[in-house]
Design a protein around this nucleic acid. Structure first.
Length: 383
DNA sequence: CAACCTTTGAAGATT
DNA sequence: AATCTTCAAAGGTTG
């Protein structure tokens, strides 16, 4: 049983939350931090289109805050920051399509955030369905939905979502949400096994964990035959992707039945790490701001923004990620990341390694500076 | 149409 | 223990 850090701790047990070079990174974020505050002070509700067009024009001369170095002129400060920043942050300088550059030229691509994060937090909610058979266990209601007694400020970005799900009259769900067909509270009294921690250590966690642990309860996805079962992003139903080897088809044997059987098993995805959570939350915003759709480019921007985040901001995501992992462990006790190894087909490994030598990621799959074991971040204690 | 690209972080695998 | 590899999201691009 994973020992949950009690609310006060958060960092207890030396659990993760390590941002290896956060300190280094943060030292470099002066400009970006300024950028951020500047942005937030500048009336974020400005008409986006107008803002964009004007910024694109301005960027020609001002070259203010080019998000991606090498994309166009690039701001001096930005470039400087980059120089001091991770060498890994040299982001495919010559690869950017023009449309991309246009998008990246807009200063708002490098700043302006932390708003309207409801939809993505919903994704968090949606992430973990109850394991099969979960509905068979009676479950005492975790003392979590008592939102009234819980401060709504611990994780500002998520609280709106929390409100959304706990309020009898939730705020209108973003399009993203509605698409997911939220079946609201079934209050299925089960999953006790998976929330046993709620009564104990879990109960001491900040309120976010409350809704965090609820979704599986309410959504009831992934449970075969469950009337309210809905598809869930975390559990990927074996799709047509599930490749049946040619020889399997001819062999109507145990092998096939085995394959079929496994095919029926939904894939349990890895829990998202802090950065992934951040990306999920901010992607739409970046897309809106930068007129970009290419994920690779967006991810670069998000990567930089991630480094530009304040310690506290990052800490929230580390904490969320930690809870995700904990919840994941609770939901899928036997699951291992190894389970998904080899499920993604790689076209050519050589190509991969080749690119690794290109100076971005080292063979370690990370950056030189990051290769060292990350020091625990201990966000909760600090906060 | 599946893999790639791109990011960071976690964790399994290998040396 | 240190190093290396894979996967997690995502959507346009590419082979």
């Amino acid at each position: 049983m994973p020992q949950l850090d009690s609310g006060g701790g958060g960092a207890g047990g030396g659990d993760d939350l390590g941002a290896p070079d956060e300190l280094l990174a943060f030292q470099d974020e002066g400009e970006e931090q300024d950028d951020k505050s500047r942005d937030s002070a500048a009336g974020p509700e400005r008409d986006l289109a107008e803002l964009k067009s004007s910024l694109v024009n301005e960027s020609e001369g001002a070259a203010g805050g080019a998000e991606v170095p090498g994309a166009g002129g690039g701001a001096r400060g930005e470039a400087e920051a980059l120089g001091r920043e991770h060498t890994s942050q040299r982001l495919f300088p010559d690869k950017l399509p023009e449309s991309l550059e246009d998008g990246l030229k807009a200063p708002e691509c490098a700043s302006g955030m932390y708003k309207d994060t409801v939809y993505s937090a919903f994704n968090l909610l949606m992430h973990y369905p109850p394991p099969a058979g979960a509905g068979q266990h009676p479950q005492p209601q975790p003392p979590l939905h008592n939102k009234a007694s819980q401060p709504a400020h611990s994780v500002p970005q998520l609280s709106p979502l929390y409100e959304h799900f706990s309020s009898p009259h939730p705020t209108p769900a973003p399009a993203d949400i509605s698409q997911k067909q939220v079946h609201r509270p079934l209050q299925t009294p089960d999953l006790s096994g998976f929330y046993s921690l709620t009564s104990g250590s879990m109960g001491q966690l900040p309120h976010t964990v409350s809704w965090f642990t609820h979704p599986p309860l309410m959504l009831g996805s992934g449970v075969p035959g469950h009337p309210a079962a809905i598809p869930h992003p975390a559990i990927v139903p074996p799709s047509a992707k599930q490749e049946l080897q040619p020889y399997d088809r001819s062999l109507k044997t145990q092998a096939e039945s085995k394959v079929e059987k496994e095919a029926k098993k939904p894939t349990i995805k890895k829990p998202l790490n802090a950065f992934m959570l951040y990306m999920k939350e901010m992607r739409a915003k970046v897309i809106a701001e930068c007129t970009l759709k290419e994920s690779a480019a967006i991810n670069q921007i998000l990567g930089r923004r991630w480094h530009a985040l304040s310690r506290e901001e990052q800490a929230k995501y580390y904490e969320l990620a930690r809870k995700e992992r904990q919840l994941h462990m609770q939901l899928y006790p036997g699951w291992s990341a190894r389970d998904n190894y080899g499920k993604k087909k790689r076209r050519s490994r050589e190509k991969h390694q080749e690119s690794n030598t290109g100076g971005k990621r080292n063979a370690f799959g990370t950056y030189p500076e990051k290769a060292a074991a990350p020091a625990p971040f201990l966000p909760m204690t600090v906060l």
